[in-house]
């Protein structure tokens, strides 16, 4: 399998990373080299093997329903690119 240039651009769009034509072309070559390495996976039969998401077979711990957090928004917003009246500002959101 190999990635086409439009596919490279599509995934860059999905990932919201601006990519020039030249960058996309360079990325295409590198990604295809990497996918050659990855394709080695297809050589093994994994029929009947359960996928493994974590190193250990443990289950989710539950937190008690208690409010433990206090208002810190002034501290958090001190490092924000653009805020006003406690709100984060972004270019107009279109619904």
């Amino acid at each position: 399998m190999s990635l086409s240039l439009p596919e490279v651009k599509r995934i860059a769009w999905l990932a919201r990373i601006e990519i020039t034509d030249a960058e996309a072309a360079a990325a295409q070559g590198q990604l295809n080299d990497i996918f050659k390495l990855i394709e080695q996976m297809q050589s093994v039969d994994t029929g009947g093997v359960a996928p493994m998401a974590h190193g250990q077979d443990v289950v989710q711990r539950l937190r008690e329903d208690r409010v433990t957090e206090t208002d810190q928004h002034a501290i958090y917003q001190a490092i924000a690119p653009q805020v006003e009246n406690g709100l984060y500002l972004v270019p107009k959101v279109i619904e």
Binding site: V44, T46, A50, P51, M52
Partner: peptide, 15 residues
Amino acid sequence: DAYYLKAQKIRRLIA
């Protein structure tokens, strides 16, 4: 399925 799921299955084989 071809990549992520396959990799998670191989992960189990490795474990």
